[in-house]
């Protein structure tokens, strides 16, 4: 495992499997009386969140604390960022405080890459979602959840439905699941598929019903109203009719298929409440697994010295 985790695209199959296998062992920690390991004692993890987040921030915080790291939470609201401080100056402040890992969420695609390669900080950088680019730990926890339910992902059919254009989760998942050998189908209205999607290792479709029959898992994406600056579909009602996972479509899924959603959900929009709360929905389990996967990522990035780490400072995961 290398120095940074910036993108699912950088993960080889072996890297990804190492994270998933490590997470598998770490997940049993949740069942123990003492849910803490001394592994990262004395290390500092900074959660640098320029965008709102519930799940991801809490999940990273829990993961770091269970590994005994010190956690500093930073959110743009209430910090000097609102006074106009630049990413560079914020980064230099963190460096001066001696952060060993920076977990960054930023509204601009590429901000984590900039932080990792600019030389502003020496710490490991973990991308916790950048703009509409990537969210690799979400993809890892989704792959982890899928693997627990479906076993080896090679040849499994995963359907990802919804606002692919604005979704960093969709991109990270498509790339990672393809690396792990799954067959990914993206289903979205033509207006919500990104330019250049033909170069992704996936199939695309505009018709949800035809993609449901043979899939092993269906992953619903949130319609990201906050990023929509144009009319991408005529009405919420029409979107829901054509691309929402309602009870009728849910009944057509194969019996073993599971339903996923990265959260936060718009109940009634992309997913109906009955489906979200059904026994085949693993949405809550995804959150539990998120902590184990993020522990694995922090452990693999932070244990081992620079001297012991193969490759150079420039090595990017």
């Amino acid at each position: 495992m290398r120095r940074h985790l910036l993108s699912s695209a950088d993960l080889t199959r072996d890297d990804a499997l190492q994270v998933l296998d490590t997470a598998e062992e770490l997940r049993s920690l949740a069942d123990r009386p003492i849910k803490k390991l001394p592994t990262l004692r004395g290390r500092t993890v900074v959660n640098l969140f320029f965008e709102d987040s519930t799940r991801t921030r809490i999940s990273f915080e829990a993961a770091a604390k269970r590994l005994s790291a010190d956690v500093i939470n930073f959110s743009a609201k209430g910090s000097s960022v609102s006074k106009g401080e630049s990413l560079k100056d914020t980064a230099l402040t963190l460096e001066a405080m001696g952060a060993d890992a920076v977990v960054i969420r930023h509204g601009s695609s590429g901000a984590p890459h900039r932080l990792a390669t600019s030389g502003w900080v020496r710490s490991s950088v973990v991308n916790a979602g950048d703009g509409t680019h990537e969210h690799p730990t979400q993809a890892l926890l989704d792959a982890f959840t899928l693997r627990r339910h479906l076993g080896d992902l090679a040849g499994r059919r995963i359907t990802i439905v919804g606002d692919v254009l604005h979704s960093r989760v969709a991109r990270s998942n498509a790339l990672l699941l393809a690396t792990l050998g799954a067959e990914v189908t993206l289903v979205a209205p033509p207006t919500l598929l990104p330019v250049g999607v033909s170069a992704w290792p996936v199939q695309t479709s505009y018709d949800l019903d035809s993609a449901l029959d043979k899939c092993d898992a269906v992953m619903m994406l949130r319609v990201q109203h906050e990023r929509m600056n144009a009319a991408f579909f005529p009405s919420a009602r029409e979107y829901s009719r054509r691309y929402g996972l309602d009870d009728r479509r849910f009944d057509r899924l194969p019996d073993h298929a599971i339903v996923m959603h990265p959260g936060p959900m718009n109940r009634g929009m992309e997913i109906s409440a009955t489906v979200a709360d059904s026994t085949r929905s693993v949405i809550v389990e995804q959150v539990t697994n998120g902590v184990a996967v993020r522990m694995a990522v922090l452990y693999l990035l932070l244990s081992g010295s620079d001297a012991a780490r193969p490759g150079t400072e420039e090595a990017v995961l």
């Binding site: 296998d21 490590t22 062992e25 244990s303 012991a308």
Partner: peptide, 21 residues
Amino acid sequence: LDVTMYRDDLRLRPARTLEPT
């Protein structure tokens, strides 16, 4: 009983794979 996460040389060598407990 896997002891990897409790070792005192974790910072001195590359990350080890965890074994089952």
